[in-house]
Amino acid sequence: MFLTNTEEVPGKKITTFYGVVSGSTVRAKHAGRDLMAGIKNVFGGELKGYTELLQESRDEAIDRMKSQAKQLGANAVVNVRFSTSSVAAGASEIYVYGTAVSVE
């Protein structure tokens, strides 16, 4: 399956449009990681736990979007966009959406 964030798949021709597909996840890290992040707030620097958390949930959101596109019979998703929003302290929602298409 091709995924791009451009309007078309470079080097391929779009034959059919299937409409918008999307995937989302809401995740929180366990309390231990939150505590570590609190300590890191004194020293500054990267919060590895949170980076991992967001990366994992992003991968899962992409997987959900892919399976939705597959159900429609598409073989590519173009114009993929990400959006992140914090729903509560320590939990964040990742939303991925794009247009499912068929390419040659």
């Binding site: 091709f2 995924l3 791009t4 964030n5 798949v9 470079p10 080097g11 992040a37 890191k40 707030n41 004194v42 020293f43 500054g44 620097g45 990267e46 919060l47 949170y50 980076t51 967001l54 990366q55 992003r58 992409i62 993929v80 990400f82």
Partner: peptide
């Protein structure tokens, strides 16, 4: 072609 991403969470001291 493929979708790629990279991210970082950073905190102030």
């Amino acid at each position: 072609c493929d979708l790629v991403n990279g991210s970082m969470v950073v905190s102030v001291d």
